Simulated scan of single mutants.
Amino acid sequence: MIVPEIPIREARAADEPALAELDRTTWSSLHAVMPPPEAGQPFYDERHRPEHYLVAELGGAVVGYVRLVPPTPLACNAHVRQIQGLAVAGSARGRGVARALLRAAAARARAQGAVRLTLRVLGHNAPARALYEAEGFTVEGVLPGEFLLDGAYVDDILMGRSLTG
């Protein structure tokens, strides 16, 4: 699939209000296991820093983000990067923003020396799973019933892809 040119850049400290608002407006139990973020809650903290995020812009406005980090601080795991968050504003959905963010994350991971890219997705999030599969991710593990969301047990799906092929 051809993705239209969508400006992607590293997040900046000044993006915090826009990212916090995006996080609040896109929250759903379809993809989140944490409670919804509250108004006024900071987006960045010591574990979630601007350099961990790539943002997508349309018309000069932040419309999406992906968080890309090493999965652990261990040297033996330094060849892997993990996507730990992806959000796209409702107004920008269907325009290739998530796909562009995933591709930018893969490029950034390669530039950082990674040879694998992993993520976790909730089993009931069929649209996200389809997107990840279309971008080369495969299911590498399933934790059945790992989360209780909205009164139902939901699988935690572990997905990954090589960055060398």
Rank of each mutant, 00 (worst) to 15 (best):
V62E: 05
A92E: 08
G90S: 11
G90V: 03
I83K: 03
E38R: 12
R99E: 15
H48D: 14
I83S: 04
Y53D: 03
A98G: 15
S91F: 08
G40W: 01
H52F: 09
L54Y: 02
H52G: 07
L58E: 14
V66F: 01
P42F: 06
P70H: 15
V55W: 09
R95N: 10
L74A: 09
F43G: 09
P70N: 07
P70G: 12
N77Y: 12
R81L: 02
L68F: 03
C76E: 08
G85T: 07
A39M: 03
H79G: 00
A89V: 09
P73R: 00
R99T: 14
P73W: 00
V66K: 02
A87H: 05
P36E: 06
H79C: 01
G90Q: 10
H52I: 07
G90K: 10
P42A: 02
G85N: 04
L74E: 07
A89N: 10
Y53F: 15
V97L: 09
V88C: 05
G60Q: 09
G90N: 06
G90M: 12
Q84V: 14
E57K: 02
P70E: 12
A56I: 04
Q84P: 01
A78I: 00
L86I: 15
M34L: 10
I83L: 11
R47W: 06
P71R: 06
V33A: 03
Q82V: 10
R49L: 13
L54A: 04
N77I: 05
L30W: 05
D45W: 06
V88T: 15
P37D: 10
G40K: 04
L54S: 05
P71Q: 08
Q84M: 12
V80Q: 08
A32K: 03
L54E: 08
V88D: 14
L74S: 06
A78Q: 11
V63C: 15
P71F: 13
L68D: 01
H48Y: 07
R95L: 10
G59D: 11
L58C: 14
F43K: 06
L54G: 05
R81Y: 04
Y65H: 15
Q82A: 15
G59N: 11
G94W: 08
P50E: 00
G94P: 01
G64T: 08
P73K: 00
R81N: 00
Y44C: 11
V66L: 05
V63W: 01
R99M: 13
G94S: 14
M34Q: 09
G85F: 06
H79T: 00
S29T: 13
